[in-house]
């Protein structure tokens, strides 16, 4: 017999996954605007963002209702509190995708500053982090979540390298500054998306094992 409560938990999971798929698409589109110069995708991002905002409110309502009506404990409690946190991380990711799209649209108004090499690689890694943290959530897989945490360092390194490289362009010719700044902002926003994926991965580990690994808490405890 499936309990009513479990049906509602499943519904919450489904909503969160649907939101995750929208956010994944937003990130994908925002990078395509930049790399493939597909301006028309901006419309889709806008539409998705509205949906994501709507679902964010809906998920919070579901979580509050479940907490109030069922007073869940243990694994159920960890699932719901994690869902609330993942919810806000996903919404923030969507906002970053919108930022990336805006910077990219600015860039499309001018000829490319340089061939894009590192940025698409960085974007691929970040997209995989987003996919992996959501897969880890679905399959309750702490190992996959751990992989996401490890990848974050690579993303940070890309951001630093891209910044240094573009600094050279800016110092060479002041006409480059505006485009270089947009590219720096894109990498900055991608790095933030990676951070949110890392947060989600940490939530998944807490949800599955009950261990809070944020800020290396385990090293200082016990």
């Amino acid at each position: 017999m499936t309990r009513h409560f479990e049906e509602e938990l499943n519904e919450l999971k489904e909503r969160l996954l649907y939101m995750g798929s929208l956010v994944e698409a937003m990130i994908q589109y925002s990078i395509k605007i930049l790399v493939e110069r597909k301006e028309e995708l901006a419309k889709d991002i806008k539409k998705h963002e509205e949906d994501v905002n709507h679902i964010q409110v809906e998920i919070d309502e579901i979580c509050l209702k479940l907490l109030a009506l069922y007073q869940p404990t243990a694994g159920d409690l960890r699932f719901i509190t994690s869902a609330m946190k993942i919810n806000s991380d996903l919404e923030r990711m969507g906002d970053q995708a919108v930022n990336i799209a805006e910077n990219s649209l600015d860039l499309l108004k001018e000829p490319p500053l340089k061939p894009l090499i590192d940025l698409p690689k960085m974007a691929d890694i970040v997209k995989n982090m987003v996919k992996d943290c959501l897969d880890a959530f679905v399959s309750k897989d702490p190992e996959l979540a751990g992989k996401v945490l490890q990848t974050d360092d690579q993303v940070d390194k890309f951001k630093d390298d891209i910044f240094k490289e573009l600094l050279v362009y800016m110092s060479q010719d002041s006409n480059n500054i505006s485009r270089a700044m947009d590219l720096i902002l894109v990498s900055r926003n991608l790095e933030r998306v990676g951070d949110h994926a890392t947060n989600i991965a940490e939530d998944v580990i807490f949800m599955v094992s009950g261990k809070d690994i944020r800020h290396h808490l385990l090293e200082t405890k016990e």
Binding site: T73, A74, L77, R78, S209, G210, K211
Partner: peptide, 9 residues
């Protein structure tokens, strides 16, 4: 009530 160790609990 948050992270019991035993599955039965």
């Amino acid at each position: 009530f948050t992270s019991p160790e035993k599955k039965e609990t």
